[in-house]
Design a protein around this nucleic acid. Structure first.
Lengths: 257, 257
DNA sequence: AAAATAGTGTCTATGAGACACTATAGT
DNA sequence: ACTATAGTGTCTCATAGACACTATTTT
């Protein structure tokens, strides 16, 4: 999806037009990029939040974000924010939705293009600074793919105050991930390199917020061809250790009659 | 999904900050809204295109679109475009994706928030003006939900030259509609008030670009509870007339043990 | 009567859930 | 030996496709 189709020759008339074009003739707005960094640990779905130091909404918790630069693309801006505010590179990142209600930011008109990223919890370790950066548990008030705002809390029963319309953005992220979970291998993005089927199932359960059938989960995932067994097993359990799996890049297809 | 949470009292300090805030301190961009108006007729998926009269890309075919006003929301802007450029109100409209590659428009930096609308073909009758406004047949080079740019043509084998990255936007619209078709009642949006099961199936087949099983389509749709039979039948056929159905607003649920 | 599609009943293949059973680690 | 989970085999149920058959309209 790139629009780079403009290397071809343009007519003289068009070139003259472009040179005399005055961009200030149109209304211009601020465009921001906000990123929902999601992870799953201990049966919970969590997101990275940053405490705002400046007005407006100073003191409230916000998604990591930033304004678009004039020369960068949207995905590029989202990756810049991710690297700058969370030190993350090479993670799953996808555009989510664009929020543009006139009153969503009291300063001026800001259109925000929201992204979401999926990260294994290990990659977020050490990132938390109490009172500044937090990995907050998401509280989803609707089942399935209902939709609507989603809250965040650091300890049970103590919801964080979210800035702007960021509860709506969190809601859109949860909805998207829940919907995508059973036809795209996004559960794998939330786990380390090697993992057991049990860990993968717990991630799915954390995202969907409902228990899954153990047996059919196993069969379905093994049949998908997305998992490659290593010959290793987990260690340090107080029961029979499970086999460790890896994400198999090449999805096994079954297009044969 | 609105961000209107700002009626609450703000502190004096914050109020003073807002009054002294200078919006021009940030880079500002142009934000546009483009709408893919989709319809299905004669087994084909079609989109409304407008011939550009001005540079850049004068003479090429583009999606109906316009720049965002400073006071309106995104959905609002999309509905304004839809009413102004196609005379359509009260149709299904949903945000699609936001395109923001730096080089997508040669004038200046324009971020475009794309929407798609679904309309019954009757509502687009009389809208076409040869050479100016066209309902073009979409040529989708990928099966299923593959993704990628999509072309448009008025007659077979004569593709239209599309402006900017609008082939990518068409591709995103087709992908979305195909993906949503079997879990959301969007096929109904492409049909008039009353329709036969055959017409509905032909719409689905046009969207998916593959034949569907007649029997299971019938059973699945009837079981969905989305269709309400009228006691009327179609007229003027050269065979047995089929019953006419209507969209049943209240989806019949089956949440009982 | 012929043609063409509407609509029904039934069989089969597939996939998920339920459940029983065996296997293997730590304690 | 006991406990807890891994992993396998089998049964059932729901759903989609295939297919045969009947029904009803126009020409």
């Amino acid at each position: 999806m790139d629009g780079n189709r403009h290397g071809k020759a343009r007519g003289d008339e068009e070139r003259a037009f472009l040179e005399s074009y005055d961009p200030s003739a149109f209304e211009r707005l601020s465009v921001a990029v906000d990123v929902v960094v999601l992870t799953a640990a201990e049966g919970e779905l969590r997101a990275l939040l940053v405490r705002r130091r400046e007005h407006p909404d100073a003191g409230r918790w916000a998604l990591p974000g930033g304004f678009m630069g004039p020369r960068e693309g949207l995905d590029e801006a989202a990756r810049r924010v991710l690297a700058g505010k969370a030190g993350l590179t090479g993670v799953f990142l996808e555009q989510l939705y664009t929020f543009g209600e006139p009153e969503r930011d009291p300063r001026t008109r800001i259109v925000s293009v929201a992204y979401y990223a999926l990260v294994a919890p290990e990659r977020l370790a050490g990132l938390e600074e109490p009172g500044e950066v937090a990995l907050a548990r998401l509280t989803v008030p609707w089942p399935g793919e209902g939709g609507g705002p989603v809250g965040a809390e650091l300890s049970p029963g103590a919801p964080l105050e979210l800035a702007f319309d960021h509860a709506d953005i969190l809601g859109a992220a949860v909805r998207r991930v829940r919907g995508k979970l059973d036809y795209a291998p996004i559960g794998l993005e939330l786990l380390p390199e090697r993992f057991t089927l049990r860990e993968l199932r717990l991630v799915h359960e954390a995202v969907l917020a409902r228990p899954l059938n153990k047996d059919s989960f196993r069969r379905r995932l093994l049949a998908s061809g997305l998992l490659a067994p290593t010959s290793e097993r987990e260690a340090g359990t107080e029961h029979r250790p499970a086999e460790l799996y890896t994400f198999a890049r090449q999805a096994a297809s079954k297009e044969n009659p």
